[in-house]
């Protein structure tokens, strides 16, 4: 984004002198937006590149679990909706890579980092989509959790990221609704459909809660991100917001959430919920989830199989440029 309006990569690793950071500090204090060529601490830049890149990777890998059902969608209407949704996710990945590039990174380099496993993507996409109802549960729970995470990012201190998120959030609102609609139809359908819906919610509920990350006391980096205006709410705050939003919706669906400790707490004005077993999340992150290898291998294969096509387009562009200059 923004042409030469970003810092050259080699400038990125130098910590600017203390006195040059005054403007940056002033922007944070006044809720102003930091823009690409502004002086910024090296840690701020790196934190953002890492976060935006991994957010983009999540969008791109996130196409797979749902792409898995495009060919089998049970009606043509559902097929069209699902296709449009998966396509949006590619679009969101593109907006985000572009935002990361304003900080001096190159998309080719970031994709290499994904493909070689040095950068990660959200673990939620390492779970398999086993039935059609999973399309509903992903839309309702996974996208629901993502929206809770992403809405505050629209006010992120870094302008290009915030603007990309505004666009993403606008598009994302249909994703959650279509998921809810799928589950609502299933839960009001045949016995088999209802069982399918309940099974999907049972499998996706806890992983969705884990999307918000570990509890606040186990998240040492949050404080810095908050101070920089990159993160606006703590992991636990966002998780609570999601639970409070979702429980009444589950009642409308007529589906139960698989947590015996889930109950309204009058005093807190929020729902209490059971303790999250993070052991599984950490195992999935370490690479031992059901689909880690498959997701990455699919992505790498698409990239490698497409190399000849990308190179051909480059070669053609170079030939055309030569032809134009010869004519001129």
């Amino acid at each position: 984004m923004y042409g030469n309006d970003f810092t050259a990569p080699d400038e990125g690793s130098r910590e600017p002198a203390e006195d040059r950071l005054a403007e940056f500090e002033r922007l944070l204090e006044t809720e102003g937006r930091v823009e690409p060529r502004d002086v910024m601490p090296d840690g701020y830049r790196k934190t953002l590149i890492r976060q935006i890149a991994q957010h983009a990777h999540s969008e791109i890998i996130g196409m797979q679990p749902e792409g898995n059902w495009i060919s089998r969608a049970p009606s043509l209407r559902r097929k069209a909706i699902l296709m449009a949704k998966v396509q949006d996710e590619a679009g969101h990945g593109l907006y985000l890579y572009a935002a990361a590039e304003t900080l001096g990174a190159d998309r080719g380099e970031l994709l290499d980092m994904l493909h070689s496993g040095r950068q990660k993507y959200s673990s939620i996409f390492n779970y398999p989509t086993l039935t059609w109802a999973d399309m509903g549960a992903i839309g309702w729970l996974v996208d629901g959790a993502a929206i809770v995470n992403q809405v505050p990012l629209c006010r992120c201190s870094y302008g290009p990221y915030a603007r990309a998120m505004v666009r993403v959030c606008k598009e994302e609102s249909f994703h959650q609704r279509q998921g809810f609609e799928i589950l609502h139809t299933l839960s009001h359908g045949t016995e088999a459909q209802k069982a399918m819906a309940q099974d999907a919610v049972d499998r996706w509920w806890w992983p969705s809660l884990m999307m918000f990350g570990p509890t606040d006391d186990a998240s040492p980096n949050s404080a810095q991100s908050m101070a920089w205006g990159i993160k606006r709410f703590s992991n636990d705050e966002l998780r609570q917001r999601f639970v409070d939003m979702t429980v009444p919706q589950a009642e409308v669906l007529g589906l139960t959430l698989p947590d015996p400790d889930l109950r309204w707490n009058e005093e807190r004005g929020s729902y209490d919920f059971g303790e999250i077993d993070f052991t599984e999340l950490f195992e999935v992150i370490k690479g031992n989830g059901p689909c880690n290898k498959q997701r990455l291998a699919h992505r790498v294969r698409a990239h490698e199989d497409g190399a000849w096509v990308r190179e051909a387009a480059d070669a053609y562009a170079a030939k055309q440029a030569r032809r134009t200059s010869e004519v001129a």
């Binding site: 993507y121 990012l153 999340l281």
Partner: peptide, 8 residues
């Protein structure tokens, strides 16, 4: 960090 949108 869950800040990255689609989860931790």
């Amino acid at each position: 960090q869950a800040g990255g949108g689609h989860g931790a």
